[in-house]
Design a protein around this nucleic acid. Structure first.
Length: 294
DNA sequence: CTCCAGGAGATAT
DNA sequence: ATATCTCCTGGA
């Protein structure tokens, strides 16, 4: 790879991004995406689809640049980072006016976003996520991308796609340390490759139908389906219920003793149609331990 | 050494 | 319906 002149010029997000350093870092590396690696605490390298990108925090500005010869429009970057008015609208729909817990999360993590990632790749990473920590998911995901994808920038490999993964054996995936998840990936890949239009169209279905489609795939249960829909399908109503959020709801909303199904029901009613965005604020706030401080 | 992670699927009640 | 066990791997 030609290292000279690899990166194009830095471009700057509009003023209304509202990110803080913390909320930007949390957006990129807080567990919704596994594409971003830090070069420093203020500088990340990652990808959007098959295009390699860098992103940095520079004196309250957020800047990005891409590999010069790769194609990506500013508009696509803005869409990926949810920079449009839809973000503020979604925040406005949350019940922060009457919910002090949520108000605190939003205030402390101003600018935190749900990324609009490609659905196929999001499904892949979350199939790997069960009983794994963020660094582990990133590590085994990267191993697969490195072996079957393209190197689109130094140390950045593209997601090879389900068609390609359909040609890989479970044993080979196991050799990449996927463990029992290897079977999920291998079987899901074959199923998708044999479908007429692959995963296309899922993003256009109503939430319930899209979820039903994903639940047909081996290794995809309630939690992972909602992660894929929220982080890779632009379904802000999807509410992934992991053990962290479950504990958080018990503690912050006095739901101790409630069954999981009832907790989800509470979340949908209470947080409304952008419940997934609320989930992300809660999740990050718990992760960073900023709810117990004043 | 044992335990258990940001889960899903199979099996048994 | 709900409870329990197992599945790989790596880190505490």
């Amino acid at each position: 790879m030609n290292k000279e002149n690899l990166w194009g010029p830095w471009r700057t997000f509009g003023k209304s991004h509202h990110f803080s350093h913390v909320s930007l870092r949390e957006t990129l590396q807080g567990g919704q995406s596994f594409d971003w690696k830090s070069l420093s605490d203020y500088h990340w390298r990652g990808k959007i689809g098959d295009v390699a990108l860098e992103c940095r925090w520079e004196k309250n500005l957020v800047q990005w640049r891409k590999v010069r010869i790769q194609k990506l429009k500013s508009l696509q970057v803005e869409k990926y980072f949810f920079l449009d008015q839809g973000y503020q609208n979604a925040i406005d729909e949350l019940p922060w006016r009457s919910d002090p817990v949520l108000r605190k999360c939003i205030s402390k993590l101003r600018g935190l976003r749900i990324l609009r990632q490609p659905l196929d790749q999001t499904l892949f990473y979350f199939l790997l996520s069960s009983a794994k920590s963020i660094p582990q998911i990133q590590s085994i995901g990267d191993a697969v991308c490195k072996k079957y994808g393209k190197e689109i920038a130094p140390e950045i490999y593209s997601f090879p796609g389900w068609e390609r993964l359909a040609q890989v054996s479970e044993a080979e995936l196991r050799s990449l340390k996927l463990g029992y998840r290897a079977k999920y990936v291998a079987q899901t890949a074959r199923l998708i490759a044999n479908q007429d239009n692959g995963l296309e169209g899922i993003g256009d279905l109503p939430y319930r139908d899209a979820k039903k489609e994903l639940l047909r795939l081996p290794g995809v249960g309630e939690k992972i389906a909602d992660c894929v829909l929220l982080f890779g399908g632009n379904f802000l109503e999807a509410f992934p219920m992991d053990t962290w959020i479950e504990k958080s709801l018990e503690k912050r909303y006095a739901l101790k003793g409630w069954k999981s199904d009832n907790k989800i029901h509470f979340a949908r009613i209470h947080f409304g149609k952008s419940a997934g965005l609320a989930q992300q604020f809660l999740f990050s706030a718990e992760r960073l331990g900023i709810l117990d401080k004043k």
